[in-house]
Amino acid sequence: MNVNVLLNELFTVNSLKKILTNKNYTTFQKTAHKIVEINNGMTNFEILSAIYKFMSKKHRNEYFYKNTLFNKILLGQHSVNTTTAIRELPVAGNILDFLIVNGSGQVYEIKTELDNLKRLEGQINAYYKAFSFCNIVTNEDDIEGTMSHVSRPEVGIIVLTKRNTLHVEREPVKYDGGLEYEAMFKILRKYEFEDILKTHFGELPKANSFEYYTVCFDMFKKIEITLAQSYMLKQLKKRYTITKNQVHEFNKVPMELKSLVYFSEYKKRDFEQLNHFLYKTDMEA
C-alpha cells in the first residue's frame, strides 16, 4: 500500500482506537516498516515519532495541519481549561476543518499542499454565516494562489512554513455581516438550543413533536443575532473538555498524538492503554 495512504489511515481517531482496544496494529506496523529503520529496543513511541517526523517533511496532510494548529494555538496560546477545539463541524452545507472557541470562535480552513482551491471562496462565505473570524491555513508556496481565491479582506491568512512554524501573513478582522440564524441553529444539538432558549426566554415552547423544531427555531430567531451567536459559542465551548482530573495525564500525551487524544474524549482507562502501547518495545502489544 502507498505510504501516503498509510499515513492518512494511521493518524485517525479510529485507527488509534483499534490499536488500543482491539490490539490491531496492522496499519501501524505497515507504516513503520516502510518508513522507519527499526532497531531492537525501540519503543512504539520512538517509532511513531519517527513516522511523524517523516510526515512533517514528506507528507504534510490534513492531520498534520490540524495537529500543528492544536499544539501551537490551543495549547501554545490558550489552555484546554479555558478553550475548546472542534474539528469537522458541518456549517451551511460545508465541513469546517478546525474551530477554536474561547471568547470568540476562530475558524481555520486548511488548504494543504495536497488540496485544490476551487471551493475556497464558497467555504469561507458559508463559515461567515455562523462565525465572525475566519482564517485560511496554507503553505509557503500557495500564499498568492490562496489570496487570489478569496476576495474578502477580513479573512486571515496563516502560513505553515517549511520549518513547521505558523506565520500570520494577515490578521483576521471581525465580520458579522454574513451571520444567519439558520446556519447557527443547525449547528446546535437539541439539548444545546433548548438550553439557549431556556436561558434567554426562561421557558421552552409548547408544541407537538412534529412542530417542535420549527417552533424552537422561530424562538431562536427572536434573539438579536450577535447575541444568538454568543449563546451558540458558549454551547460549542462545552463540547470537548479535559477535566481537572485528566489534565496531568493529557499533558503526558506526546505532541504527535495530542489532537487525536483530545477528540477521542479519553477516560482514565484509555490513558492507561495509550501509555502501555507507547512504551512497549519491539512493536509489541
Rank of each mutant, 00 (worst) to 15 (best):
R60D: 12
N14H: 08
A50H: 09
Q229G: 09
N208F: 00
Y279L: 09
K111F: 04
V215P: 02
E62H: 13
K268F: 09
M1Y: 07
Q246Y: 09
I187A: 04
K53N: 12
Q235D: 06
T21H: 14
K190L: 13
M219T: 00
V3Y: 00
D218P: 00
L20V: 07
I223V: 08
E182V: 06
T146N: 02
R152Q: 13
M219N: 06
G76A: 08
F210M: 07
T31K: 02
K162P: 00
E113G: 15
G41W: 13
R119Y: 06
H167Y: 13
T68N: 11
Y231F: 15
E113A: 15
T27F: 06
T199V: 04
V5R: 10
P153W: 03
T146W: 00
N164K: 09
R269T: 06
T31C: 12
E88M: 03
M42G: 05
G156Y: 05
V168S: 09
D97T: 12
D282E: 15
K162R: 14
N44V: 11
N116Y: 06
N94R: 15
K280Y: 03
D142V: 04
M232P: 02
N81A: 13
N40R: 04
V150P: 03
N94C: 11
L7K: 07
T214K: 11
D141Y: 15
S151K: 13
P205G: 04
T21N: 14
N139P: 01
I242L: 08
K23Q: 14
G105K: 05
E256Q: 14
E284D: 11
F11Q: 01
F98L: 01
N94H: 13
H276S: 14
A285F: 06
G122E: 10
A85V: 14
N135V: 09
F64W: 07
E113F: 00
E192C: 05
E256I: 10
K17H: 12
I47L: 10
F277C: 01
I223N: 11
M255F: 10
T199G: 01
S49I: 03
Q229E: 14
L99F: 02
V168W: 11
M255Y: 13
L7F: 08
M255I: 12
A50Y: 02
P153A: 12
I35K: 02
E203C: 09
I143L: 12
H276E: 12
K118D: 15
Y181R: 03
V253L: 08
I223M: 08
K174P: 01
R152L: 13
L260G: 10
N2D: 15
M219A: 03
T27A: 09
G93N: 08
N245Y: 06
R87P: 00
F193V: 03
T31P: 02
T226K: 15
V101D: 03
P254G: 08
Y181C: 07
G156A: 07
E171W: 08
Y65F: 15
N94Q: 13
